[in-house]
């Protein structure tokens, strides 16, 4: 049962990502990519990592894709005349509807799997507590290195942004 759900979810993720790559309309791409992230989150849940599943939704679907949307809207990447004539409406909403239905079916099937029944949930099922403990004990060094890298990136982005804004206003203080 769990294997079947895994393959369905995998197919949903791949199809949704393929749709995201091929859409002309950037906002539609974002929606397909969010679908793909949902499928990924459910795969994580199936693998016994509910915390990672939650992060997948919060960080990728909820924050990073929202930032993508923000950029798309700021740049006004509106679909041109061409994108409007993509064909009948059904072609636009049917794929996302099917993907959504597949995800919903998988959710219901996941509910059917009894977490206590063994087979579905492996014995390395990670509660938030275990996960946090391992993350900050065994992998503490890796976590630190990655977070420093992110800090460098943030500082770098800040510096680049500042330098650009200073050039723009010649009358400003040097």
């Amino acid at each position: 049962m769990a294997t079947w759900i895994f393959y369905i979810l995998g197919a949903v993720a791949v199809v949704a990502t393929a749709m995201a790559v091929t859409r002309r309309n950037p906002v539609h791409s974002v929606i397909y990519l969010v679908n793909s992230f949902f499928a990924l989150a459910m795969i994580f849940y199936l693998l016994g990592a509910p915390l990672v599943a939650a992060w997948e939704v919060i960080i990728y679907a909820g924050a990073i894709m929202v930032l993508f949307l923000f950029i798309i809207m700021m740049l006004e990447l509106s679909p041109g005349e061409e994108a409007d004539r993509q064909g009948p409406g059904a072609l636009q909403w049917l794929p996302v509807l099917l993907l959504g239905a597949a995800l919903l079916t998988c959710t219901l099937l996941l509910l059917q799997l009894d977490p206590a029944a063994g087979q579905a949930v492996p014995n390395w099922y990670a509660s938030p507590r275990d996960f946090g403990y391992v993350l900050f004990h065994e992998y503490a060094l890796a976590v630190e290195i990655v977070s420093f890298q992110l800090l460098f990136a943030a500082v770098g982005a800040f510096y680049v942004g500042r330098a650009a804004s200073r050039e723009k206003q010649p009358g400003g203080q040097q």
Binding site: V27, L51, I58, G62
Partner: peptide, 26 residues
């Protein structure tokens, strides 16, 4: 057992309704 994260996740998804509505209105 991850209720707090569920709340945060949904509240970050709630942004989509507003954003897509505003964008789709043209």
């Amino acid at each position: 057992n991850i209720g707090v994260l569920f709340f945060l996740g949904l509240s970050s998804l709630a942004v989509y309704g507003m954003t897509l509505g505003g964008w789709a209105s043209n």
